[in-house]
């Protein structure tokens, strides 16, 4: 069970996402995607929708958490948080979970609209789990990246680099540009490909294969490892370095 302070911190983070216009930007982007996809037909639509959800729960998660961290860095508010009874783990989890909730809402909007207007068939439980775990993982990575970036511009550059190295191969594989079987195995260590597997297999017809289970476990286990041994461990040093006190 989540403790009350964690719930309170998540609520605070969600309010700040709204106040700092991050929510508005994410819903605006969702709206743009809705309009673009609305005019796409047939097979292209069926390929594009999972890809779009993949981009939203991976790259966009990195961007949103990056922007939150840089707002805090700019205002040095982290130092005030460090001298409250809130634990470091609560401060980090509040950021990760609020970003996940926020991302889940904008992605859910896209899915619900297309379920209604284009009769998209999706397993709601599987897509919910897929979005939540993909976003949790990539938000955690985004937090870790933000520790090492000087400003938002360098964060953007890093996200572009990750897109180039991880997202593009996953996308090329999913649209059959990378056809060789070897890619199927090489890309399994790519977290974006893992997210791609669990998202794309959530659309009907449902036929979960070993790659689904592997990808799911890969995201959960490596995500927990990154959280515990990198993000949580280095948080205090990062918070002190940006606190400006």
């Amino acid at each position: 069970m989540m403790n009350n302070r964690l719930i309170y911190l998540i609520k605070g983070e969600l309010i700040r996402l709204h106040k700092y216009k991050v929510t508005s930007v994410s819903f605006l982007i969702a709206l743009i995607w809705l309009i673009v996809l609305y005019f796409v037909d047939g097979n292209i639509f069926n390929d594009l929708l999972p890809l779009l959800i993949l981009v939203d729960s991976t790259m966009m998660s990195l961007m949103y958490i990056g922007s939150v961290m840089f707002f805090e860095k700019k205002e040095s508010t982290m130092s005030s948080m460090l001298v409250t009874p809130a634990r470091n783990s609560e401060l980090i989890l509040a950021k990760i979970l609020s970003n996940t909730i926020h991302n889940l809402l904008s992605t859910a909007l896209i899915i619900i609209v297309f379920v209604i207007v284009k009769n998209v068939e999706v397993n709601y439980i599987l897509i919910f789990l897929a979005i939540v775990f993909s976003t949790l993982y990539h938000t955690t990575i985004g937090l870790l990246l933000s520790y090492y970036q000087k400003d938002f511009t360098t964060m953007l550059m890093t996200v572009m680099m990750i897109s180039f190295l991880l997202l593009i191969p996953a996308v090329l594989f999913s649209i059959n540009v990378l056809k060789s079987d070897i890619w199927e195995y090489i890309l399994l260590i790519n977290p974006i490909q893992a997210a791609n597997e669990i998202i794309s297999q959530s659309f009907k017809p449902i036929n979960l294969d070993w790659k689904y289970y592997f990808s799911f476990l890969y995201l959960v286990i490596s995500g927990l490892f990154i959280y515990k041994f990198l993000v949580l461990k280095q948080f205090k040093n990062y918070a002190i370095s940006i606190s400006g006190v």
Binding site: R16, E75, S79, G244, V245
Partner: peptide, 11 residues
């Protein structure tokens, strides 16, 4: 109270 005023400016 830190030397620098620290608050969420958009709240």
């Amino acid at each position: 109270s830190f030397e620098m005023p620290i608050h969420f400016s958009k709240m």
